[in-house]
Amino acid sequence: MKNSQETSLDIISEEKITSETLIEIKNLKKSFGRLEVLKDISLKLRNGENLIVLGKSGSGKSVLIKCIVRLLNPDGGTINLLGKNVVSLKGAALSEVRKKIGFLFQSGALYDSMTVKQNLEFPLRRIKRNLNEQEIDNKVKEVLDNVGLADVLDKMPSQLSGGMRKRISLARSIILDPVIMLYDEPTTGLDPVTSDEISELINSIQKKYKTSSIIITHDIACVRITADRIIMLHEGYVYAEGKLSEFEKSDDPLIMSFFK
């Protein structure tokens, strides 16, 4: 286990981006007014892995993935995503990179005014304009089957349960066949059974779509099901990095407070 930000920083600074590294973040900083949320974050996401970003509420986990897709602009550092520094990208170039990323929001973020079908079609009709109606229908059916919901096409998001909303939201984020998936607290607000189902779904999507994922969570059950590697954020720094077994064996009080 790397028990300080220095250790993980050393690893990252020695290596260049290869096809095995999909995201490489170096010295990321983000403040809101006087509040420094991310002080110096460096990490990398390797091809095919599920990277868990663990941390207390307010530790900057969500800020981190929002910086990756540039929903928030970082104050400093670089984010190399699929070989491009997204910090300096604008307009069409940024959109091109975003097309390769699926983002599952904490709230699901389904469009309230649209049916489930319209929600799923929305990214397809805008990004893949050459698809005909039949191809769009097939794609919608495929992603719905993959999340285990086939008969909710004409329902409005308000008619769905929390778990169903998460599944539909997940279906929408994979409909463009992303290379990288970013999950923002995928199991928050769900009961333990549904949480486990969503965690299993994350694994099955990783296998089926061959995605690499960053999963923001503080749900240890989700961590146990999905984690290939874990990074813990604390007070704006990467506090620890390692495998699940290493975290579980740790005698560090902060880590133990999560895994006890």
Binding site: S95, R126, R172
Partner: peptide
């Protein structure tokens, strides 16, 4: 508030 605008932006729709 419900992050729908963010979701739109992330799916490369302005």
């Amino acid at each position: 508030v419900t992050e729908q605008i963010d979701a739109m932006e992330v799916s490369a729709t302005n």
